[in-house]
Amino acid sequence: MVPLSYYLVLSGILFACGVTGFLIKRNIITVFMSIELMLNGVNLSFVAFAAQWHALSGQVFVFFVMVVAAAEATVGLAIIIAVYRTRETLNVDRINLLKL
């Protein structure tokens, strides 16, 4: 038996790591990966709460999060490729103009 709060704390730590990465990383791909990390942390808390309340809908939600993450990854990476083509940099600090 493991207290459920351990799972939640793990999920919280992952989310915090994601937020930190989002703040301090300067490579746009890594920033994007930090978002995925946050989503993963949230997924863990969904599954943990599903076990707490004996409601499978918590697990079903994880699938929706995954689908949204997949859609986000495809569009996001396509945007990154497009940005790289026009600016030839991946540093988020240099991508600060709406128009070239």
């Binding site: 301090i24 791909i29 600090d93």
Partner: peptide, 12 residues
């Protein structure tokens, strides 16, 4: 994109 090592800048 052959992404290289990230550079740290002011914002970070």
């Amino acid at each position: 994109l052959n992404a290289g090592v990230e550079e740290r800048s002011k914002g970070s």
